[in-house]
Design a protein around this nucleic acid. Structure first.
Length: 193
DNA sequence: CGTCTTTGACCCGCGC
DNA sequence: GCGCGGGTCAAAGACG
């Protein structure tokens, strides 16, 4: 529409230091973050055949993600969604609880909310630790659909908005957004070197 | 009026 | 068990 449209962020966050994520056991980690600066995905990936905002949860995507994770034993490198630098521990119990599908990405944008074609109702706002900017909570307004999303700016770089989706929509999109489709189509998943 | 936002209260898991 | 951090509820208000 105009110059305020969100743009895919292709900056240099990947060069920043990584944190260490330690799970109490094996393979399916709670947080799987691609080191690429424009996209990160967490919570165990997607199931075959599911669609998420035009992202096919294909094995191809999963493979890319898996190959993008440096894993040795229980240790997985990631870059925190909330800019934490500390060590985070997650046990098996918590992992099973957090089984919801999660999907997050960063955009460089002046506006917090980007039109993704769905209707959202804001139901909360919280100030989070170590971040001057509040986190906003939204829920899909479609009846029976319980998809949520969180929107938050990075503390270090307030031009960057982190949007985290949780869940899979039980319905089709009502008002397709060309802007958002463009963003998705520009996204790439880079394997870790 | 219907719809969405604001905002303090409430709740809950976790670490000390 | 208590406090903290983070997620949600819901009453009241804003706005078309």
């Amino acid at each position: 529409m105009d110059g305020t449209n969100p743009k895919l962020y292709l900056g240099s966050l990947a060069s920043e230091k990584w944190s260490t994520f330690t799970s109490s056991h094996g393979s399916t980690s709670n947080i799987n973050i691609s080191p690429s600066n424009d996209l990160f995905v967490n919570s165990g990936g997607f199931s075959e055949g599911e669609m998420f905002h035009g992202f096919a949860a294909s094995s191809e995507v999963s493979d890319h993600l898996n190959s993008g994770i440096t894993s040795s034993g229980n240790r997985i490198n990631f870059m925190g969604t909330d800019d934490r630098n500390d060590e985070v521990k997650v046990d098996a119990k918590q992992k099973n609880k957090n089984k919801k599908q999660r999907f997050a990405f960063q955009t460089k944008s002046q506006v917090d909310i980007l039109d993704d074609g769905y209707r959202w109702r804001k139901y909360g706002q919280k100030t989070v630790k170590n971040n001057a900017h509040p986190r906003n909570y939204y829920k899909c307004t479609y009846q029976g659909c319980s998809v949520k999303k969180q929107v938050q700016r990075l503390d270090k770089d307030e031009t960057i908005v982190v949007t985290t989706y949780e869940g899979i929509h039980t319905h089709s999109i009502q008002k397709p957004s060309d802007d958002f489709q463009n963003i998705l189509s520009e996204m790439k998943i880079f394997p870790t070197s």
